[in-house]
């Protein structure tokens, strides 16, 4: 069962609200968006585990502010905005941790020790993420700055208008326009580089 935002608000004003009724209402309103939010999160994060954690956490946050939420903006944009903000926050927190090179050896008094990364290529459970051209596109997306990635995904994967993206990202339409443009140009560059590595003809993406 899905309920429109306006219906839900009207209903919540006429009937007595309990914790359970609020939860049921929220869950039913959110259900139709879950798949789209998960897809956005998947394209943002690049893998299923992070995407699922991101959407679950974002929806719990949305639920906490659900009672104080006043209608006016669209429920859909509001949900996407929470997911986007949480994603940017997570990235910021992560960047506080020091990044370490995996190529440089650890140097001891008695000599060097080379770091190693496990090779999952022989493990079939690690091969669930996309491969081939789609994998390359995802890899290119992962290389983009978060703001560009978000704008491009909202526009080209989910088909939002510039106005809706501006609402979700809390910025002007001009900013949306330049983020999408720069994002696509950067993507084009990465895809061309990957294409050269894989002997794809330069100048043709597909």
């Amino acid at each position: 069962m899905t309920v429109s935002w306006a219906q839900a608000i009207a209903k919540s004003k006429t009937t007595k609200r309990t914790a359970e009724s609020d939860r049921e209402l929220f869950a039913s309103m959110v259900q139709e968006h879950e798949r789209y939010l998960f897809n956005i999160a998947y394209r943002l994060a690049g893998n299923r585990e992070e995407a699922e954690d991101l959407v679950q956490e974002a929806l719990v946050r949305a639920f906490r502010s659900f009672r104080s939420f006043e209608p006016g903006t669209s429920f859909k944009s509001w949900l996407y905005r929470i997911v986007s903000n949480l994603y940017v926050d997570t990235l910021r927190k992560r960047s506080k941790y020091r990044e370490e090179s995996l190529d440089e050896p650890i140097i001891y008094e008695n000599g060097e020790f080379k770091k190693s990364i496990p090779d999952y290529s022989a493990d079939p459970s690690q091969l669930v993420e996309e491969t081939g051209f789609v994998g390359e596109v995802q890899k290119a997306l992962d290389c983009l700055p978060a703001e560009y990635r978000l704008a491009v995904i909202l526009c080209d994967v989910q088909g939002f208008s510039y106005e809706e993206i501006a609402e979700i990202m809390d910025c002007s339409i001009g900013t949306v326009r330049s983020r999408i443009h720069r994002g696509r140009k950067a993507l084009r560059k990465y895809l061309e580089e990957f294409g050269k590595e894989r002997n794809w003809l330069p100048g043709t993406v597909q």
């Binding site: 789609v134 596109v137 491009v152 080209d156 993507l187 084009r188 895809l191 993406v205």
Partner: peptide, 10 residues
């Protein structure tokens, strides 16, 4: 082409 590539993501 980039837009089409993104739209073609499953």
């Amino acid at each position: 082409q980039v837009k089409d590539a993104l739209a073609s993501l499953g």
